[in-house]
Structure formats: C-alpha cells, structure tokens
Amino acid sequence: MMDSNTQNIQNRTLIAVSNNQEKSSYEFQVKNQYEFSSKGRKLKVEMVEEADGIMLISCEGVRYPFEIVSIKQNTYEVMVNGVSYTFTIETPFSLKRRQILAAQKPADAGEELRAPMPGKIVSVLVKPGQEVQPGTALVVLEAMKMQNTLSATEAGIVGTVAVKEGQTVSKDDLLVETKKPKA
C-alpha cells in the first residue's frame, strides 16, 4: 500500500534526501507552508527577509541566515550559516521509484568531470583507458591564482579526455569522462 493512502488527508509526506556521503534523509509531514512535523515533533518555520536583504530562517528558537543557492528540478542547494547542503526532495512514491531506478543503473554508467569554474588547464593527469579510484587526480585547473586538483569521485575507467594542457575552459565544460568498470 502506498503511504499516501494511509496518511491524513491534509498532510503530505516529503522526504529530503541529502547528497552527502551518508545519504542521510529527513522525513517531514507537511501541514501547510509553515507547519511541519518530523518524527512526531511539530516544527514551526518562519522565513523573513531583513532590511539588508539577508534571509533568515527561524525554527525551534534559533535564527540562522540562509540562501537558496540553486534549484534543479527537485534538487535544492541551500546554505545555512554559510554551510552548503544539497537535498533532493522526494515524495514516498518518487523515492521508491528512484530506489528501483538506482538498482537498475547500467553497470557502465560513469561520471563526467566538468569545470567547476572558468580557468586554465595546467595539467592533464590521466589518459583514456586508465583505471581510476575515488580521489585519483584527473586534471589540474588554475583559477584565481590557485591550482585546483580535480579528482574522480567514483572508481572507473577513463573514457574521453576532452581537454589539453594550456587550454582555457569555461564553467561546466566537459573535462574528463569516466566509465564504470564492467563487473
């Protein structure tokens, strides 16, 4: 049975799944725009914009400055106290679908490393066909007088290397593509 059929008709359930390593998740019952509950605890939320444009969220007696950094479909990146959090918001149904999809993820799906900021490629550290582990340095990008080493987050095999040393790149340009090793 779906949760939505058993829950109170006024409340809907939303689950915030964190994109952090632990994939921690928080389930909320939503009463209206301001009233939520989590694990049976009522949470009243207020958001105000102060005169200088700073947004504050107040909940449970604390007031923290926040910012909505980006919204991509149902994925929200928010900053609270200057710390960034990314959550994907799911309904009980979409969460189930996501879990099934994740289980069926093709084995050769890999990752695409894109430029996080405009800059210059100082060095390319991998070649197509090379095996990489999480943390293996792929390219070094120079921006703001700093050299930033961009690394793989998953184990895989390098597919395309789209950049050369000395090349200038824009934000979100494809740098290196890796594929999952065949099981």
Partner: peptide, 14 residues
Amino acid sequence: HEELIAALLAVSNY
C-alpha cells in the same frame, strides 16, 4: 540541528 533546518528549508521551498 543545522542539517535538519537545511532539510526543512529545502522541503519548505519545494
């Protein structure tokens, strides 16, 4: 409770 509040913020905006 910062992460909880961040989650709440995302849910509330959603």
